[in-house]
Design a binder for these strands. Structure first.
Length: 172
DNA sequence: CGCTTGATTGTTCCA
DNA sequence: TGGAACAATCAAGCG
């Protein structure tokens, strides 16, 4: 389900307008253990195979944006600057532009899912019962880069066009 | 000398 | 169902 966030719209956008004050979801963890709970403690507990989260479309976009941003702002050395700028631009971008990034992110996710598969198994490790349902992840495999059709030429077939949006953003 | 933070959004998982 | 936590970056700053 996804909490109906599908078009949730707003929510984040609006919040983004305002300084992230409370939004620092970075880590709301309860800092009770350590006086200085770092924002993201690198995994307090080591999991045997906990795959790292796949970068979201936003992160993917950031990777590219970082370089661009640095190029135009070589003076800026603050990582946060890129984050902020990237965040704003991200919202400025239309979904169509984010699409390619999302696609890439989706790919990363696919691999992540694979890892999770193995991770899940390890979780049950001791448990008996049901197990094995999925095939063991093949270690090999992958690597295929199927790049889909990048037919941007539009062979003339019309269609498509529905791309929805382009610019405009909803909101309103 | 080394760890820590900082900031973005999205995504994902656990209870 | 909801919240909580974490994903990359990268250098500066403090202990």
């Amino acid at each position: 389900m996804k909490t109906g966030k599908g078009k949730g719209k707003a929510k984040t956008t609006k919040e983004a307008l305002k300084p992230v004050d409370d939004r620092r979801v970075g880590k709301r963890k309860a800092p009770a253990e350590k006086p200085q709970p770092s924002k993201r403690e690198k995994k307090a507990k080591k999991d045997p195979n906990k795959p790292k989260r796949a970068p979201s479309a936003f992160f993917v976009f950031l990777e590219d944006f970082r370089q661009t941003f640095k190029k135009e702002n070589p003076d800026v050395k603050a990582v946060s600057a890129v984050g902020k700028a990237g965040g704003q631009k991200w919202k400025s971008m239309s979904q169509a532009e984010k699409a390619p990034y999302e696609e890439k992110a989706a790919k990363r996710k696919a691999e992540y899912e694979k890892q999770m598969d193995a991770y899940n198994k390890s979780l049950e490790e001791g448990s008996d019962e049901s197990e094995n349902s999925l095939s063991e992840v093949n270690d090999e495999d992958e690597a295929s880069e199927e790049e889909e059709k990048v037919e941007k030429g539009k062979a003339g077939e019309d269609d498509d066009d529905d791309d929805d949006d382009e610019d405009d953003e909803e909101e309103d």
